[in-house]
Amino acid sequence: MLLVIVDTIATLSGLGITAAVVLYFVAQKFKVYEDPRIDEVEEALPAANCGGCGFAGCRNFAESCVKSESFEGLYCPVGGNEVMTNVARILGREAITQDPQVAVLLCNGTCENRPKTSHYDGASTCAITSSVYGGDTGCQFGCLGHGDCVEVCDFDALHMDPVTGLPVVDDSKCTACGACVKACPKNLFELRKRAKNDRKIYVACKNQDKGGIAKKSCSVACIGCSKCFKVCPFEAITMADNLAYIDADKCRLCRKCVTECPTNAIIEIGFPPRKIKTEETAQANPDKTENKSDNNY
């Protein structure tokens, strides 16, 4: 009995030692030198592996950061300036900063605003729907509502609103990784500069049809009337393809265009309720209130 136990222990130990020796030499022979800074940089990254930087994962991004001379084209949108500063410190370089951004849905074609004109009965993804036709409403530019964007969001920052049928961005969770921008077959998402208190003013429409047609299919469509363009004091609004576009970098959130829009296609979020005498008051004391509304418009 004892002999069996001794035999067993001896055999197993022998095997273990042999394997360890073999493994040691193999590891020595096939050792690959890696810049230790890659690990350090990777450590500093958010480890979300979301691909928002344009690389396959955080490791790839870290490798590229270490290998390249500058941060040209290298930015982690999820970590933002803080993480990029840390990365820059590890590599002993000057950090680059970017304004934080947030994803915004440029469509307000809710079930109410944009009545259905047909019933879609196929696999329920936006990509497949859009390969079949323009969509189940009169607007072929608007949201299809199957939630391809929700599917790709790694940060739980998007969910479908069952009442409106549109996805809603949770600003507190959105990291501007850009996955939804790529996923949307209608290109309805835009990464816009984050303003104070997550305030936003934007044209929630991408309908390029002529005004009359657009308005017929959706009551809050931008009809390209240029009224906002004319009223904007900061030249933040441009007109193209029967659409107005507000440049978030130039917009000073004065809200003049919002009241001007005849179809309510321009949306304002996060502002205090308007007083009777609207624009001037709001513009004069924009920061007095901490009333941070959530985005359920």
Partner: peptide
């Protein structure tokens, strides 16, 4: 199952 829907999507 909508097999062809997804195959077509993959194919494109």
């Amino acid at each position: 199952r909508p097999l062809l829907d997804f195959i077509r999507f993959g194919k494109s």
